Simulated assay, not measured.
Amino acid sequence: MIEKTGVRNRILKALSDDDFSLVAPHLDLVPMPNRFKVASPGQPLDYLYFPESGIGAVMSLTPNGESSEAGMFGVEGFVPTSTIIGDNLVPYDIEMKVGGAGYRMPIRMIAELMLKSASLHVPFVKYMHVFAVQVAFTALANARFTIDQRLARWILMCQDRIGHDTLEITHEYIAMLLSTRRPSVTNALHVLEGERLIRSSRGIVAVVNRKGLERFSRGCYGVPEHEFERLIGDR
């Protein structure tokens, strides 16, 4: 059986030992490669996922297929969050953007296990709140902050989930996630490089000065992260 000490996912780690023992027999470690589709609009869901590595995005879609990132997830969370309220449908795309791996569990099992433990749902509900805060600050960043500041926020969020300084992702992908044009991303990367906050090359962004990036983001990064640590972080 999976040992809690060997798990990286912070929602699973936040479970009490008794609750983890309930969940562990029903977890399967599976690959979650780049572009792995966790959920699609209106398609019935079979599993929820607890990433151990990689980065994924919840993407809002227009009727003609255009998309924009509403929220980011990784080792700190689980998806789809709606499964915890008994729903097996979502109106958006959930897809991995940086490949990794994670544990999956049948949705029917989490519903059954929550009937056995009154405390099992607590970290899941807390994460739903934290993710809602992140989505709210993504909307604020898109409406009130510059592309340079938004890019700084996005790089910081990626670094939080990857756990090291180098992010392998193309300018085209960043442009899609930030709902802007590729030349705007290139210009913003040059601005951050000019401030000596990052280094950028083809398909690679490396963080040089994290504290500087946080200051540069002018407050559009930090509140959701604080909420996570306040409610779920290691105690």
Score class of each variant (00 low, 15 high):
R10S: 09
H171L: 13
L178N: 02
G222W: 00
Q134R: 11
T81E: 11
V38Q: 04
V207K: 05
A143I: 04
R108L: 13
P31L: 01
S21T: 11
R35N: 11
S67F: 12
R153F: 02
A188F: 03
N64C: 07
R235F: 14
K13N: 13
V58W: 07
V205C: 01
E229Q: 11
I198M: 01
A39R: 00
W154Q: 09
L22V: 06
L231S: 07
L231G: 06
N9F: 03
S16M: 10
P25Q: 05
D87T: 11
I162K: 03
R8Q: 12
A175N: 10
V135K: 09
S60K: 08
S179D: 14
F36I: 03
G54A: 02
V58E: 14
W154C: 03
T62D: 08
A57Q: 13
A152R: 00
L156N: 03
L120C: 06
I174R: 09
I11G: 05
M105W: 01
C158E: 08
G212H: 01
S82R: 10
Y92T: 07
S21W: 02
V23G: 04
N34Q: 15
M72T: 14
T62N: 09
L231M: 14
K126Y: 14
M157I: 08
P80E: 01
V208F: 11
K126V: 12
I155M: 01
A175K: 05
P123L: 10
N142C: 07
L156H: 02
K4F: 11
I147L: 13
G212I: 02
S16G: 15
A141L: 10
R218L: 09
L197P: 01
D17T: 09
A111P: 04
Q159G: 03
S53Q: 06
R8S: 12
C158M: 12
I169L: 10
